[in-house]
Amino acid sequence: MTSQIPVVVAGALGRMGTEVVTAVVNSGDCELVGAIDNTPGKEGFDVGVEMGLKDLGVAVTADFEGCLCAVSQSARNSDQRAVLVDFTHPSVVFEHTRTAIAYGIHPVIGTTGLNSDQLSDLTEFSTKASMGGAVIPNFSVGMVLLQQAAAAAARFYNNAELIELHHNCKADAPSGTCIKTAELMEDLGKSFNQAEVDEYESLSGSRGGLRESGLRLHSLRLPGLVAHQEVIFGALGETYTLRHDTIDRSAYMAGVLLTVRKVGSLKQLVYGLERLI
């Protein structure tokens, strides 16, 4: 029998973190061994009790590096290396990923906000350490399918804009998922949205964020939303719209668990769920 995969969840009491904790506990082949969260007044309390579940025997801690160090030491006696699932904040995600690799813990990063230079640095660092990891802007299989469809459609349309809509507690804009979609469309090496008029904005930012390829990305933040994305292509006499709606965060859990199960076989950092399915 193969032992369970030890999993640490960072951001354990957040919207995504609580979903991940529940999924890990109910998975059958994963074991929750750490719960990191800096919510005031929660340190030392059992994460399961704080979530309204049963006592899970895992106390909440705000000490990120201390938790990883302890898990790394205990995992040496297991035939499974530990995995960190991180849903925290863009300001700390780079250091979290690098620290996990340094401690021999496979990072599975759902936090967005890493830039291209940081991704390159982490990929090089993970390759030198022969430590697999995954940066996944979106864990939804449906979103992966949308991104592949958008990349295919980009071959036939020269005009396209992207719109992403999220809850108003999301810190970064545009979303990592939207950026990833644009990158896949840009793999063709073509330019989009050739100017037809001398455009100007009477209100700065009205036309969204402009990428070097000519693609424009628009971000909406409103309470009541979860995560949504549209890619709209236009041509003479027609438009073609791709849209994905996340109704509940539980939609991401199949992708999270798939990544947790596969990341141990990787030897470097990969970017995007499509690399694993």
Rank of each mutant, 00 (worst) to 15 (best):
Q4V: 07
V8N: 03
V9Q: 11
A10S: 15
G14Y: 11
M16Q: 13
M16H: 08
T18W: 04
T22R: 15
V24S: 03
S27W: 10
G28K: 05
D29W: 09
C30D: 04
E31L: 14
V33Y: 05
N38Y: 13
T39V: 07
T39G: 01
K42T: 15
E43C: 09
G44D: 12
V47E: 07
V47W: 09
G48T: 10
G48Y: 07
V49D: 12
V49Y: 06
E50Q: 15
G52F: 06
K54P: 00
D55V: 00
D55K: 10
G57R: 11
V58A: 09
D63L: 10
F64R: 05
E65I: 10
C67R: 14
C69Q: 15
A70G: 06
S74R: 15
A75I: 08
D79N: 15
A82V: 07
L84I: 07
V85P: 01
D86M: 07
H89F: 01
S91I: 07
S91R: 11
V93T: 14
T97S: 15
R98Y: 10
Y103G: 12
I105F: 06
V108G: 06
N115C: 07
N115K: 05
D121F: 09
D121S: 13
D121L: 12
L122I: 03
E124N: 09
F125E: 03
S126M: 05
K128L: 08
A129M: 06
S130P: 00
M131Y: 03
G132I: 01
G133V: 03
M143N: 14
L146S: 04
Q147H: 10
Q147P: 00
A149V: 02
A149R: 06
A150F: 08
A152I: 11
A153V: 06
L162S: 04
I163A: 03
I163W: 07
I163E: 05
C169V: 15
A171K: 12
P174Q: 09
G176T: 01
E183V: 09
L184G: 03
M185V: 09
E186R: 10
D187V: 08
K190D: 06
E201W: 03
L203Q: 12
S204V: 01
R207Q: 12
G208C: 02
L210Y: 00
E212C: 01
S213N: 02
R221H: 12
L222S: 12
P223Y: 05
G224W: 09
H228W: 08
Q229A: 11
I232H: 11
A235W: 00
G237H: 11
Y240D: 04
T241G: 01
R243P: 03
T246C: 13
R249H: 04
S250R: 14
A251N: 09
A251D: 14
M253T: 14
M253Y: 11
A254S: 14
V256P: 05
V256I: 13
V256G: 06
T259H: 02
R261E: 04
G264Q: 03
S265N: 04
L266Q: 01
K267D: 04
K267H: 10
Q268L: 03
L269R: 01
V270I: 15
Y271D: 09
G272K: 08
L273T: 00
L273K: 01
L276G: 00
